[in-house]
Design a protein around this nucleic acid. Structure first.
Lengths: 163, 163
DNA sequence: GATAATGATTACAGATCTGAACGATTGTCA
DNA sequence: TGACAATCGTTCAGATCTGTAATCATTATC
């Protein structure tokens, strides 16, 4: 039952899981190329998006969402602060935590990021008719929900863990 | 035109490009966890698949397909050879190149890998009815073709390049 | 008011990546 | 034939990246 020529041929192209992984890596790379023109990495772009969705989060929460250890988040946020994109503000209620927010310059860049993301979306889905495009989004959201992925948060800014 | 509450809300969950990237990372991580039980990394699993699809390729070709520099491919192949999964054979016509092939042990492991991949596919697409599952595969293949991705080859075993 | 817990940060050691070089072999061309 | 360039596999050193654990300030517990 392992040599059916008909059953095995789809395996050469992979099922949905393989295609998602393959396309995901491809799409992520293209996005990285695009945002590089704004001097941003995908993780930096992700932070901008996260800060506008829910401002005032602590660094630990943000690091958790981005899938990076807090120790790595510090120099990561440093760079964005030095560029004037984000602001660290001490929380008056708990002076241990920093509340991170976007600066005006950060919001400006986020707007340009939106333009880039829109162009990227269209370039990726060129092959699809508008109704198919919506169909795909629907299917992907159903999977994302069932897999309990946080909407709008991309935890993939880490290397694949083997354990 | 940038503050339509209706138009902006889907952006919070992301379009198809974001979902593909998010789900791709998630699915790739789950696959990594699964194949780890076979003492394999995703890249190693990919090499096994590639060798059965088209045996006798040179290391340089394989490295190219996997998206890693030849210098990194060498220790990568070393490990698999030491485990007796692949074989390096000098090409009689061109003694510079090695032709890599699967050993019996490698093919055996590849069979177990197929079982793992099948279970993974079902787990990923739990949320979808059988016809939706096929629909999704169809849409993803159309995109993959249009984006000129090599069928069955996952070039994402590299870090995201910023340039 | 002493002790434990938490957030941010730093220090450090280990893994990992990259690009340039090297030896061996083959193609090219006078 | 013989010099020269190109290719394949490989190695190596420098740079980069990554996670763990220790440190400091602040807050919760009791």
């Amino acid at each position: 039952m392992s040599t059916n020529r008909e059953k095995e041929s789809p395996a050469f192209r992979g099922g949905a899981a393989f295609l998602l992984s393959q396309l995901g890596a491809h799409v992520a790379q293209q996005f990285a190329d695009r945002v590089a023109e704004l001097d941003l990495t995908p993780a930096q772009a992700g932070l901008l998006r996260m800060l506008v969705q829910a401002p005032g989060r602590s660094q630990r929460e943000l690091a958790e969402m981005l899938g990076m250890p807090p120790s790595r988040f510090v120099p990561f946020a440093d760079g964005m602060q030095e560029r004037g994109l984000i602001e660290r503000r001490r929380n008056p209620d708990d002076r241990r935590v920093y509340s991170l927010t976007l600066t005006d310059k950060g919001m400006e860049l986020l707007a340009r990021l939106g333009t880039v993301a829109k162009a990227h979306e269209e370039q990726v889905c060129q092959a699809l008719a508008p109704d198919e495009h919506q169909q795909l989004i629907g299917l992907l959201r159903r999977i994302a929900d069932q897999q309990q992925l946080t909407p709008g948060v991309h935890g993939g800014y880490r290397r694949l863990r083997s354990g």
